[in-house]
Design a protein around this nucleic acid. Structure first.
Lengths: 224, 224
DNA sequence: ATGCAGCTTATTGTATACAAATGGCATTCG
DNA sequence: CGAATGCCATTTGTATACAATAAGCTGCAT
């Protein structure tokens, strides 16, 4: 993607993810254009893309709003994600190369290291976690699957800031990865898929927990 | 969508599906703009959309080409479709209303009627078949799922013209629908999902069969 | 007071001109 | 003769002006 267009896309997307653009609020093309320092043309491109990715929705008269997701919507997205990632794991089991397996082991060791210390380095954990999943997706070798997962993986939910990373959960994630590695080693697609399903379901419940806590906090603030 | 933009999208899409734009061939924005009688702006919108839907792909330098799918790609798409439609059936089983069940019965009766006659009316069959699946998707009540399925349902494969509709296959489709109706009636999501999986897998093999026949014909023509 | 008509303003859609980038061709140098 | 390089043609990207459409407001009539 070209420069202005890419800049606009990344800017708007991160403004949505960070909550700078509030869920439910209307967004105007020209305002975004100014914020991004480009003209409306690349902004419109970005909005269309973000609409396809369901970060933005439009009313009948084409006005754009930041998507606002309920917990049900979130669960729906996680269900789809679990299904797709399990499918990816199954495909990966029969296609993954020795080299990719090595990379998986590397990232899994790194993310373990990130939380096995007095001061856990959560961003580092998340980064290696992301790469771990990316390698599996690459090994699955399905462009369509990759595209679809991209649509369902990053959720436009604000709570990222208040997200409290439960260490116990991160450790369990690491152990899931360990088990995935064994399943891959044995080329057992069914096993890999089953582990992956549980792995993502756990992620959902952690997310949902954080979400409700977050919502309560917000409610408390409003009441005060 | 507004007029020019919508026209451009529909035009280009149908040109791809009909084979008027050949798979693998480059497409230029200005040429399409003239063909559609609009400016490049709405054409660009359409191309972006079609790219997201994988009807079009772009090389490193942003030039657009009509997608050209191998049999493997096709199978990949059908696998994903089977998974997603099975998921839809499962969700639908617990949510479908009496009224929707009635509509399903109606369309299934109609499509049976379309092929249970001396001169089978295949377009009519296809239309009611489409509506049958649409109702299930509506009953599943997941916008994300709907979007995803749309991406994987219509395949940019030319063979539509040469497609030979095996009556036996159509009858089996009808029977699958019958079984789905019973599963829905009993609110048995697992059963519905299983039937749907088989239903789509069969569709793939029918498609693949037609595809290879078609390819052979084409090869023969080239050789002659 | 309330609801509707018509106008005004805000916002998006489209066309077009121009800028940037890419690919192909020809020419030249090794 | 082949490969590299620079120029030209083609194609896409961006900005901007203008058109169309929808929302909101004002004032009038009931």
């Amino acid at each position: 993607m070209s420069r202005a267009s890419e800049r606009a896309y990344n800017n708007i997307r991160s403004m949505i993810l960070s909550g700078e653009l509030q869920p439910g609020s209307q967004i105007r093309e020209e305002a975004l254009a100014e914020l991004c320092g480009v003209s409306r043309t690349p902004v419109r491109d970005s909005l269309r893309r973000l609409e396809a990715e369901m970060f933005i929705r439009r009313n009948d008269s084409q006005r754009s709003f930041v998507a606002d997701w309920s917990l049900d919507d979130l669960e729906d997205a996680f269900h789809l994600r679990a299904m797709l990632e399990a499918h990816a794991a199954k495909r990966a089991a029969s296609r993954i190369t020795r080299e990719q397996l090595g990379q998986l082991r590397f990232h899994n060791a790194q993310l373990k290291q990130a939380i096995d210390m007095p001061n856990p380095d959560v961003p580092k954990f998340l980064d290696h976690n992301r790469q771990f999943h990316a390698i599996i997706l690459a090994a699955a070798a399905s462009e369509r699957l990759t595209n679809m997962l991209a649509q369902v993986t990053e959720q436009p939910v604000v709570l990222r800031t208040a997200r409290h990373y439960d260490l116990e959960n991160l450790r369990r994630s690491h152990h899931d990865h360990d088990e995935l590695l064994i399943a891959f080693d044995k080329r057992d697609g069914e096993w890999a898929a089953a582990v992956m399903t549980g792995h993502i379901r756990r992620a959902f419940h952690a997310y949902a927990e954080a979400h409700s806590t977050n919502t309560e906090i917000r409610k408390t603030n409003l009441a005060a």
